[in-house]
Design a protein around this nucleic acid. Structure first.
Length: 905
RNA sequence: GCCCGGGUGGUGGAAUAGGUAGACACAAGGGACUUAAAAUCCCUCGCUCGCAAGGGCGUACCGGUUCGAGUCCGGUCCCGGGCACCA
C-alpha cells in the first residue's frame, strides 16, 4: 500500500474498473426490489458548474447507499439539449446550435465520468435527437386528436426592431436585450395543453405525496390556486352593445361596496369605448408597452382611465363607472373585476389616486371589536378610511344582507343573484392552460401541417419524426421560417399543397417525460414499454428548488397524460405507434381518477429532494456605456474588517477597487461561477464530493468558499494514513467478541452508534453533512485509542472497515482502495452496508443535565434504568442544586428521562 | 406586488418530537518538529465581568406561550427562490 494518498491514481483505476465491469448497468430481470434514483438532467451549457456537482453527488450518494442495501438501483443520465442558449451561442460564435450542443455534451459527459458517478450510461439520451423527440411529437398528435391540445391567441413580448419574440429574461427594464427597443405586447396564435382539465387531480394528488417537501406542495397548491367565488353580472346600458359585464370575485360579500368596475385594456368594452375617444385609445396603446411577465405587471404603477361607460349594480341598480386599468389581466377570469376600495388594497390605492369613492360595508365581527382603527368604524365618514379592511367580518349598509357574516353573505348573495339570473357560484383556478408554441428554431418541431382546405392536420405516426434540420445558420429569428424547402409539404389528409408549422415546442415539454423514457431509451417502436412499468415511479428525484413549480407540475401533468393515453396500461407493451387508442375516460379528463389505474402510477416521483442553490459573491465594474462588467471571484482579492466581514474588494490584476454585488446563484451572466474542474484536477473527485456533501445540508443553499476544500482533502489524507499504518502492521480479523477495557468498550459503542446515526442520516434525514461529521468524530476517537495488542488491533480493523463502508457512498474511489487493503479480495461493488451491533450500544450509567429554574447548574450521573422518583431525590440532594435553590423549597421538579432534571423554586 | 423558504461565533454549519446553544470543520492565534519552509502533530478560540473559582449576556429585531424557546404563536426588518418564453 502506498504510504501517500494519490487520488489521481486510485480514481482513474476505480473508474476504469467500473467501466469494464459495467458495474452500474441496471437490468429489469433482477429479484431484488428496484430503486430508481434520478437527478434532474443538465442543460448542456458548456461545462459542469457547482450546482451540477452538488446535484449529482447527492443522487450518487443515495444510489450507492441503496446499492449497498441490496436494491436493484437504476441511475441514468441524459441531456436537456434544446433551448435558447444554443441559439445565443450560435449567434455569438457562428456555430450551428446542434454542433455547439453536441460538443458540449461530449465534454460534460467526460466531466461527469470523472466524478465517479454510479450511472448506467447505456441509458443516456439527448432530447435534441430525433429518436427522442419523435415520441414527443407522437404524443402531441395523440393529445391533439383527443382535444387536449387547442389553439388560441396568446400575448408575447415583441421586439419591434428585431421583429422577433423575446423570452421574459431577454426583456430588461421593458426593453429588448439586443435592440434596446421598447418591448410591445403582441397577440399571436399558439397551441395550448389543457392542463386546467387536470387541475383538480394535480391538486388532490398532492395530498398523496408524503415523500415530497411540504414547501413544494404548498407552492404547487398556491400556483394551482383553486378558489371558490361568485360570478357576478353587472347589467349594461344599451349603447354598450352587450347585456352584462361579467366579473369574478371571491369576496361577493363586499358587493355593496363596489364603487367602480375595472376592465383590461384588451377587453371588448374598452376597445369599443376607445373607438371615439382618442385619449382612451392612447391609454390602451400605452398599456401595450412593456413585458408580459407577471412580476413586471404586478410591480408597475397602477394606472387607469374612465371609459365613460357605466354598468348597473345588480342589487341597487346604481350606476357604477367602468374604468380601464392596467392591472386587470385579460387572461384571468373575465378580464374584468368589481372594485371595492374599502376592502381591497389594490382597489383602495387606485381609488385614492383617481378620486373614486370608497364605501365601507364590512366591519370586524364582535370579538375583534376595538382592535381596529377608528377609521374603520362603521359610522365614521368614508373619506377618513386610512387603510382598507380586507378580512372577513360582518356586513353593514348592504341591504337585506346587513348583519350577516362574510361567509354567510357570500352564500346568500350567490343564491339571490342566481335567482335574478345575474350570477352564480363558481370555482376557478389560478392555473392557466400551458402555451407551448415557441417562435424559435432549436426545439422540437410541432407536428402539425397547415392545409388550406383541411385546416390544422397532425402529422400521421408513420411520417414521424418531423426532423429539425441541424445544418443551419442562425441570425435573428428562426431559420425554419425562411426555409420553404423544409416547411412546404403535402397535406396528410387531402394530399394538397400545405405548410408545416414552423414553431417549436417549449423545452419544458422534453423535460416532462424524460424520466419515463430512461426505462426504455432504445425502443424505436413505442414511446414507452413494459420496462417503464417496472421502473416507475421514480423512487428518488433530486433537483434544484428553482424547479418547485413549473417543471415538477408539468412533469406530473405529463405523467397523467401518458397514463390516459394508455402508456402505463397492460396494453402498452404492444407498439403504440399508429395503434388505436383506448377510449377516453367518460365525463371529462380530470374528473374520474377512481376509474383509473392504481395509485402507484398516478404520480411520477415518489420522493423528492430539493437541493438548495450554490451561491457565490458577485463583483462588477460599471462600464461607460452603462452596462456592468462582471468579474469572477477568483480574480478578486477581498479586504475584511476585524469581524471578518468583507468591506472592500479589488481586482488582483490591477489592484483597483471593484464593486461588491452581493451573493447570488452561480451563473454565467453574473460571472460568479467556480469551475469544479479545477477542483477535481487539483484534489480529485472524492475531495470535491466530500466537500460538497459536508459544507451544508442538501436543502440549504450553499455559499461557495475555497477554504473548506482543503479541510476535506486533509481528512481523506488522514484516513488514508490511518489505514496505511494499521495495514502495515499485518492483517488482523475484525473484533468479534471478548473482554474489552472500558476505553475499548467506549470506542466500540461509539462505532456502532455512528453506524446507526450515519444510516439514519443518509436514509431518513438525507442530511449528509452530519453523517460525515459523525464519521470524523469516530476517526478522532480512533486516533486516541492506544495499544497494539490483538484486541485493540481487531477493534481498529472493525472500525476502519466500517468507516470505509460508511463513506463509500460519498467518496467511493478512496473507499474502494482502502477496502481492498483492509479486506483483500473483497468485491467493492457487492459490499453490503454495515449493521449496528445493538449489544455494543448498551450503557449502564447515563448523564443528565441538572437545571434550577431552567438554568444549567450541573450534571448528574444516574443508573440507566433509574426511576423518576429516585432521579428527583438524587437531583435535590446534589450540592449544585442545594447551592442554587438558596434554601427555598422546590415548587416543582421536572424530570425528562434520559435528558434532564429541572428544579423550579 | 404575490407565493415559498431562510437569518445561530471571524466563516460553513450542528442542536432529529420544546430539554446542555455552538457538534464537526474552516480561518485565526500560540506551541512542537525542522537549518528553514511546506507538510504533520498539540493547545486556545461566542461576547463580557473576574487573578481565579464562578457569574451575567447571547440564535436578525420586538412581543407572547411554557418549568424550560434557536425550535411554537403574533408582528417587524433583511436575504434568497419562483411568478407561466432562462433552464
Amino acid at each position: 500500500m502506498d504510504a501517500n494518498y494519490r487520488p489521481e491514481l486510485i480514481e482513474a483505476e476505480a473508474q476504469k474498473q467500473w467501466e469494464t465491469d459495467q458495474a452500474f448497468r441496471a437490468t429489469e430481470n433482477d429479484g431484488r426490489p428496484k430503486y430508481y434514483c434520478l437527478s434532474m438532467f443538465p442543460y448542456p451549457s458548456g461545462k459542469l458548474h457547482m450546482g451540477h456537482v452538488r446535484n449529482y453527488t447527492i443522487g450518487d450518494v443515495l444510489a450507492r447507499y441503496h446499492r449497498m442495501k441490496d436494491y436493484n438501483v437504476m441511475q441514468p443520465m441524459g441531456w436537456d439539449a434544446f433551448g435558447l442558449p444554443a441559439e445565443n451561442a450560435a449567434m455569438a460564435n457562428k456555430v450551428a446550435p446542434a454542433a455547439w450542443t453536441y460538443a458540449n455534451i461530449d465534454y460534460m459527459r467526460q466531466q461527469l465520468k470523472s466524478l465517479g458517478l454510479a450511472i448506467d450510461w447505456s441509458r443516456e439520451l439527448a432530447t435534441c435527437k430525433p429518436d427522442y423527440y419523435r415520441w414527443e411529437q407522437w404524443l402531441f398528435t395523440q393529445l391533439f386528436e383527443k382535444g387536449l391540445i387547442y389553439k388560441k391567441l396568446a400575448t408575447v413580448n415583441w421586439d419591434p426592431v428585431d421583429h422577433t419574440v423575446l423570452a421574459n429574461e431577454q426583456v430588461i427594464d421593458g426593453c429588448g436585450w439586443r435592440s434596446g427597443a421598447l418591448v410591445e405586447k403582441r397577440d399571436i396564435p399558439m397551441y395550448f395543453f389543457r392542463i386546467t382539465d387536470y387541475a383538480e387531480e394535480l391538486l388532490a394528488e398532492l395530498d398523496h405525496l408524503p415523500g415530497w417537501p411540504e414547501r413544494v406542495k404548498t407552492m404547487q397548491r398556491n400556483w394551482i390556486g383553486k378558489s371558490f367565488g361568485v360570478e357576478i353580472h353587472f347589467p349594461l346600458s344599451k349603447p354598450a352593445g352587450q347585456d352584462v359585464l361579467k366579473v369574478f370575485t371571491t369576496r361577493a360579500d363586499t358587493l355593496f361596496g363596489a364603487t367602480y368596475v375595472a376592465v383590461a385594456a384588451e377587453h371588448p368594452l374598452a376597445q369599443q369605448a376607445a373607438a371615439n375617444n382618442p385619449q382612451l385609445a392612447a391609454f390602451i396603446n400605452e398599456c401595450k408597452q412593456g413585458s408580459v411577465a407577471e412580476a413586471d405587471l404586478a410591480t408597475m404603477e397602477k394606472k387607469g382611465m374612465d371609459t365613460g361607460l357605466v354598468a348597473y349594480h345588480p342589487f341597487t341598480g346604481e350606476a357604477v363607472p367602468i374604468w380601464v386599468a392596467n392591472y386587470v389581466l385579460m387572461g384571468y377570469g373575465e378580464g374584468a373585476v368589481m372594485a371595492v376600495p374599502a376592502h381591497d388594497e389594490r382597489d383602495f390605492a387606485f381609488a385614492q389616486k383617481y378620486g373614486l369613492p370608497v364605501r365601507a360595508v364590512i366591519r370586524p365581527s364582535g370579538e375583534e371589536k376595538g382592535v381596529r382603527r377608528e377609521a374603520e368604524k362603521p359610522d365614521s365618514p368614508h373619506a377618513s378610511l386610512l387603510t382598507p379592511y380586507t378580512e372577513y367580518g360582518v356586513l353593514f349598509d348592504s341591504g337585506d344582507f346587513s348583519g350577516r357574516s362574510s361567509q354567510d353573505a357570500i352564500e346568500k348573495i350567490a343564491l339571490v343573484l342566481k335567482g335574478l339570473g345575474l350570477g352564480e357560484r363558481r370555482t376557478t383556478f389560478r392555473l392557466r392552460d400551458w402555451g407551448i408554441s415557441r417562435q424559435r428554431y432549436w426545439g422540437c418541431p410541432i407536428p402539425i401541417v397547415h392545409c388550406p382546405s383541411c385546416g390544422d392536420v397532425p402529422v400521421p405516426a408513420d411520417q414521424l419524426p418531423v426532423v429539425l434540420p441541424e445544418d443551419v445558420v442562425i441570425d435573428i429569428g428562426s431559420p425554419l421560417k425562411k426555409m420553404p424547402e423544409w416547411s412546404n409539404c403535402t397535406c396528410p389528409k387531402c394530399g394538397g399543397a400545405a405548410e408545416r408549422e414552423t414553431d417549436t415546442m417549449d423545452t419544458f415539454v422534453e423535460s416532462s417525460w424524460y424520466y419515463a423514457r430512461y426505462a426504455c431509451p432504445d425502443n424505436d417502436q413505442a414511446m414507452l414499454d413494459g420496462r417503464a412499468n417496472h421502473w416507475l415511479p421514480v423512487d428518488q428525484y433530486i433537483g434544484g428548488i428553482e424547479h418547485a413549480i413549473l417543471h415538477l407540475l408539468y412533469a406530473r401533468f405529463f405523467h397523467k397524460l401518458m397514463r390516459d393515453v394508455g402508456l402505463f396500461g397492460a396494453e402498452n407493451i404492444r407498439s403504440s405507434a399508429g395503434g388505436p387508442l383506448p377510449n377516453p375516460p367518460p365525463g371529462g379528463e380530470g374528473a374520474n381518477a377512481a376509474l383509473r389505474a392504481p395509485k402507484a402510477i398516478d404520480e411520477p416521483f415518489k420522493n423528492l429532494l430539493t437541493q438548495g442553490m450554490v451561491v457565490a459573491e458577485t463583483y462588477y465594474r460599471d462600464l461607460p456605456d452603462g452596462k456592468k462588467q462582471w468579474i469572477n471571484p477568483a480574480e478578486v482579492e477581498v479586504e475584511r474588517d476585524a469581524k471578518g466581514h468583507i468591506v472592500a474588494a479589488k481586482l488582483k490584476s490591477d489592484g483597483l477597487p471593484v464593486i461588491i454585488g452581493g451573493i447570488e446563484k452561480m451563473s454565467k451572466s453574473k460571472n460568479n461561477g467556480v469551475d469544479p474542474q479545477a477542483l477535481i484536477d487539483q484534489y480529485g473527485a472524492d475531495t470535491a464530493r466530500l466537500f460538497m456533501m459536508f459544507a451544508a445540508p442538501p436543502e440549504q443553499s450553499l455559499e461557495w468558499s475555497d477554504a473548506g476544500v482543503e479541510g476535506a482533502h486533509r481528512f481523506l489524507k488522514r484516513l488514508w494514513k490511518a489505514v496505511h499504518e494499521h495495514v502495515a502492521m499485518g492483517t488482523v480479523a475484525a473484533y468479534s467478541g471478548g473482554e474489552l477495557s472500558s476505553a475499548q468498550q467506549g470506542l466500540r459503542r461509539q462505532l456502532h452508534q455512528t453506524i446507526q446515526k450515519v444510516s439514519d442520516d443518509i436514509e431518513r434525514r438525507q442530511q449528509f453533512n452530519t453523517a460525515i461529521a459523525a464519521v470524523m468524530e469516530l476517526m478522532n476517537a480512533l486516533a486516541r485509542l492506544e495499544g497494539d495488542d490483538a484486541v485493540t488491533r481487531g477493534l481498529r480493523q472493525e472500525a476502519l472497515e466500517a468507516v470505509a463502508l460508511m463513506l463509500a457512498p460519498m467518496v467511493p474511489h478512496i473507499c474502494q482502495a482502502l477496502l481492498a487493503e483492509l479486506k483483500p479480495g473483497i468485491a467493492f461493488n457487492q459490499a453490503a452496508w454495515p449493521g449496528a451491533d445493538t449489544s455494543a450500544l448498551v450503557q449502564d450509567e447515563i448523564e443528565l443535565v441538572l437545571q434550577v429554574n431552567g438554568k444549567l447548574r450541573g450534571k448528574l450521573v444516574v443508573a440507566a434504568g433509574a426511576a423518576k422518583k429516585a432521579i428527583e431525590q438524587t437531583a435535590l440532594a446534589s450540592p449544585e442544586a442545594q447551592k442554587h435553590m438558596e434554601g427555598k423549597p422546590a415548587k416543582k421538579v421536572v424530570v425528562v428521562p434520559g435528558r434532564l432534571v429541572n428544579i423550579v423554586v
